[in-house]
């Protein structure tokens, strides 16, 4: 990850969503992007140029554009037509982004288009967020990582966020996915937690 004067940045063509530029680099705002917040809080998982990333819940493609600056190929999945319009525009200007309009809960619909991923990144507001992540693990190559941005309030509005996190960890472990690290994204994103997982199959 590239830091300029303690500001997280990414190398790439600017002007995607009006982000600030710093010495030819694009500033990556932790208040807008959960992944940026993860790095600001000391997240250790690094994106590398040889990586294939499966991005579930690409939304408008703002975070996608930063991921694409670092990673090799990004398969960006988004379901809603409105943000998809913006995402397509982002993908047109970055030739390592493959935009897929599909429902992450139905991987069988987009499986024929995918290849094995080194990282599955998930940021979706669904009560069954964890189940969806488990269903997509078939696309994770051995030793790959899963980075889940857990929206505890979307999973259960009434429950205490900590309890939701505990339950989600248990659900992942039950599916033989090892949770390596969890991190609350306060103060950047309230009631959101980042979970770094490994597939649990094979080494790594």
């Amino acid at each position: 990850m590239i830091w300029v004067e303690n500001v997280l940045v990414s190398p790439g063509e600017g002007g995607v969503y009006g982000e600030r530029m710093l010495k030819e680099y694009r500033v990556w705002d932790p208040y807008r992007s959960k992944l940026a917040a993860y790095y600001y809080l000391g997240g250790e998982f690094e994106l590398t140029p040889d990586m294939v990333v499966l991005y579930l819940g690409a939304a408008n493609g703002t975070t996608v554009s930063h991921v694409a600056d670092y990673a090799g190929t990004v398969y960006a999945i988004e379901f809603a037509p409105r943000p998809m319009q913006d995402m397509v525009a982002v993908a047109r200007r970055r030739n390592n982004v493959v935009p897929l309009m599909a429902d992450a809960a139905q991987p069988e619909r987009y499986a024929p288009l995918l290849e094995m991923a080194d990282l599955i990144y998930q940021d979706i507001a669904q009560p069954e967020q964890v189940t969806i992540a488990i269903r997509n693990r078939v696309f994770l190559r051995e030793g790959g990582r899963m980075l889940i941005m857990l929206k505890t309030r979307s999973i259960d509005t009434a429950e205490v966020p900590g309890v939701v996190l505990e339950r989600s960890v248990a659900a992942l472990e039950a599916a033989r996915i090892t949770v390596l690290d969890t991190k609350w994204l306060d103060p950047y994103h309230k009631d959101h937690a980042a979970m770094l997982c490994s597939s649990g199959l094979g080494p790594g």
Binding site: P81, N95, M101
Partner: peptide
């Protein structure tokens, strides 16, 4: 990737229009 992207842009635009 270029061919895959061509296909995906086509699919995405068709999907948006359909919605």
């Amino acid at each position: 990737i270029r061919k895959l992207r061509d296909l995906c842009f086509y699919l995405a635009e068709a999907g948006i229009t359909r919605q």
